[in-house]
Amino acid sequence: MKILITGVHGFVGSNLVEALKKEHTIYGLDIISPIKDGIRYTFSWDDLERDDMIPDVDAIIHLAGKAHDTKNETAADVYFKVNTELTKKVFDYFLAHECIKKFVFFSTAKAAADKVDGILTEDVVPAPVGPYGESKIAAERYLLSKMEDVRSKSKDVYIFRPCMIHGPGNKGNLNLLYNVVKKGIPWPLGAFENRRTFTSIGNICFAVEGVLTKDVPSGIYNMGDDEALSTNELIEEICKSLGKKAHIWKLPKGLMNGVAKLGDKLHLPLNSERLRKLTENYISSNDKIKEVLGVEKMPVDARIGLQATLKSFR
């Protein structure tokens, strides 16, 4: 296949190129255009306006977007300009070109729910909180509003809602947590009992290639590993990768909530947003994507994928 990937030079895009380049021809669409093995050519966003610039492709994977700013320093309109309006622009390009048969949009689990009681499934009534999730669900709704047009042109659209994606080279909260534990600082949040779903990049690549190359019905699909892990288990995995003994302290929850609120005011590494992310329950079901791909288990075990990520941090 010939595949156009927006945001191709980002973390997920770079991993998808590695996974797909042997069997497929990859073109990129990004704000930067370094030469990279596996990418035939990277086009600019202005090229999207010119039909003679981008060659005919079979599929588009839309990754480009504004990631969640945990410091809450990004204006709301920036999220909608990038996550919603840019998605509309790319999707309209997809609809206008008969040769492009498949469109994969990377949304987020946060478009469905900011908090989860029980297990998150695709049939939940979306209730995002904040401009990040709200801008993603607005993009989803635009795609879904065009499904009659999609079907009439024998095209397919896949909306992926991944939980936190990680893999070699990934930066973010997991990297921050790794560096804290690496310094030998005891983990003070052991009193918080929680479980959450993570998404190994290997499982992302498997699912993307699956929907591109198999006869998979259009729709919304949660993305995540088979096993949910607690933050305490995550700390243990980090210590395992470092060859250290885990030091987990069960300090009172009220005390740690107070420290987090102080962090909000003083811009400390532990703030209310990070505390919530580190201690909340957020379990997402991946049953639907496994069913359409015809597998009982995703190829990458949660702990094995996590160890690969942690190894890259070293």
Score class of each variant (00 low, 15 high):
258 G>Y: 11
9 H>A: 06
220 I>E: 04
95 L>A: 04
58 D>E: 13
187 W>E: 06
175 N>I: 06
41 Y>K: 10
87 T>Y: 00
292 V>Y: 02
186 P>C: 13
230 S>I: 14
49 E>Y: 13
214 K>H: 02
198 F>D: 05
181 V>C: 01
200 S>K: 01
132 Y>T: 02
253 K>E: 15
294 G>W: 12
178 Y>Q: 12
77 D>L: 07
183 K>Q: 14
234 L>W: 06
202 G>M: 13
133 G>N: 04
41 Y>S: 11
299 P>D: 06
258 G>L: 13
79 Y>I: 06
6 T>D: 10
301 D>S: 10
13 G>V: 00
250 K>W: 12
235 I>P: 03
186 P>R: 09
283 I>R: 07
96 A>I: 05
10 G>I: 03
187 W>D: 07
170 N>P: 02
208 V>E: 01
80 F>T: 02
28 G>N: 00
181 V>G: 02
6 T>I: 10
204 I>G: 00
297 K>Q: 07
265 K>Y: 14
54 I>E: 09
230 S>V: 03
18 E>I: 09
147 M>L: 12
87 T>L: 04
280 E>L: 11
209 E>S: 07
256 M>K: 00
132 Y>I: 01
247 H>G: 06
289 I>L: 06
63 L>C: 15
195 R>Q: 13
2 K>W: 09
185 I>Y: 13
312 S>Q: 06
139 A>E: 03
135 S>T: 05
